[in-house]
Design a binder for these strands. Sequence first.
DNA 1: GCGTGCGATGTAAGCGCTTGTACTACGCTG
DNA 2: CAGCGTAGTACAAGCGCTTACATCGCACGC
Lengths: 341, 341
Amino acid sequence: MVSIDDVAREAGVSTATVSRTLSGKNNVSDATRARVESAVKTLGYSVSASASNLASGRTRTIGVIVPFLDRWFFTVILSGIAAALAREGYDITLHHVAGDAAHRRDILDGFLRRRRVDGIIAVSIELDERETDGLLSLGIPVIAVGGPNPRIPTLSVDDVQLARLATEHLLTLGHERLAHIGADPDFDLDFHIPTRRWQGFLQALADAGISPPPTHYEPADFTVEGGYHAAKQILGRPGARPTAIFAASDEMAIGAILAAKDLGFRVPEDMSVVGIDGHELGGFFQLTTVDQFPLQQGERAAVAILDQLNTPRAFVEHREDSPYELIVRGSTARPSTLRDD
Amino acid sequence: MVSIDDVAREAGVSTATVSRTLSGKNNVSDATRARVESAVKTLGYSVSASASNLASGRTRTIGVIVPFLDRWFFTVILSGIAAALAREGYDITLHHVAGDAAHRRDILDGFLRRRRVDGIIAVSIELDERETDGLLSLGIPVIAVGGPNPRIPTLSVDDVQLARLATEHLLTLGHERLAHIGADPDFDLDFHIPTRRWQGFLQALADAGISPPPTHYEPADFTVEGGYHAAKQILGRPGARPTAIFAASDEMAIGAILAAKDLGFRVPEDMSVVGIDGHELGGFFQLTTVDQFPLQQGERAAVAILDQLNTPRAFVEHREDSPYELIVRGSTARPSTLRDD
DNA sequence: GCGTGCGATGTAAGCGCTTGTACTACGCTG
DNA sequence: CAGCGTAGTACAAGCGCTTACATCGCACGC
């Protein structure tokens, strides 16, 4: 393997100069720089990451911790992180932290402690006090995306407002009997998001002077299948049928659309459905949704951690200002009572 | 930061002994081992990865290159890789290699050259000659999953057989007019898989003595939407309508099911649909499919690379023996001409 | 009772960089 | 023309480990 000494010899300079040239320091003359660069090229040299790390204390690597590796939303965030970090020449080491407690310990106590990474991005993971202590005691920047942890600087979307927006869209169209597909209580233990969306839903209804019958809440597990079953419950239950469903995720909303169709309801004529996320299948199913731009969320997190690396601050605040946007497609319309057809 | 010297001092031994203890070497007495371990615990020590790498030349890290980070199939493979590597205490550095040529160069010439990883797993990426040379010249094990590259040891599924199995399932049920939804020619330039599935389809038909009319091939882009449109073409075209569709992916198969329903056909009564992959939504849509167990494919790749790391071989052969299995659900049945109902 | 061998431990030489400090040569200024 | 600042470069000391080799006892065999 060709080392920095080989390059120095080839270029007729010291290793220090080679190092300065390669790391873009400006106190190298143009002539020297050119010689070094040509030596690098002819020898096919590239720095040894570990030697560089050891000497400088910087790894140019960010650790990313994700709870799911096979769910659309999380992989899109990951994708955004990867894109933004790659742009700046940073590597990413990926840690999939699932339920397994022993494995969690391995990751949080083991891998991440070894000065392998300059910073950590934790995507939507619930950490207990001990784990949080562990992360923070590493002495490197930590940024969370959308998690519920108050002690870690977090970038998130305002879930209450998101849900309000979706709900207000339905109210604006003239719907008065709304149902909500939210989360299982179990599921919500880890992700408080569903509760906040439920709150936003209720707030919007309250502001509109509508009190929702409790039967119009149905829990599900954030999958298409879960949304399907929940919607069947909602639509099949005797009594005044809701004219619109607000599902806390696009996948559940898609399930709801399919359920409605299977029951013989037309969407949106008989039943409006709105979701949240901006899922890739939304366009195909003509799903009206509040897009929360997960790709950008990932990119913002990456940018934030790099920023923190470049100019360390003692205090990084929580930010609940990730952008979102109502995308109106074909799954919502005025309720039939207000229609001419 | 506490270093190995601190531990050595605390335990009253040399750093060499600490190092031997921690790396599980066996020539350390039980008493000494205990002292070291307790010192490690009280000081909260963990090795510096870069120092260890630099001294030993091993990183305990595998580089994984994926072409997509937001498609179910690839993220599931990634998930399998991550699980298997984590089990052995290996880290993974993730590289998302999309179309962008400059970025590709950065990855392949830059990141991976820096002795950052002990091995590389390339998931379904097409590499040109120069890129392949680059990878192989790194002098570390490289394993591909499902790519078309003859110079890199590849683990893959036998796509011809996979397609034969799916097709033979339809033939066994009594279908004689079959259609296939495959790939756009463009798409196939990168992934030769679709062509091989098409071959398997044709072989099965030929063996059964059936010559398919060319109109029964329809290209799509491996998405639900693509499958939907392709199926509409197939079903709407005048002439003898096929009684079954074999789609080269589950997502396209799901699109085909939805298209058939939208056109007023019942699945499977009027139209059978079979896919390939084992997609998570398959159960919900009652999709008959040939599952190719992507999670296991990822795990097998990880195991293979670790094996190669432990006992290097000059030559690692291609293996086309990844398991697959026909999962018969509700989207396929005998054609109506053969039914009593 | 002494040589042998082996298990347990210590010594120290790197691994390949980065970077603070020292040095050189050059062009100024006064 | 001496004195001085500065840009450009070299020197060399680490960074925190791993590991080949040296050392040291001690049990064992004869």
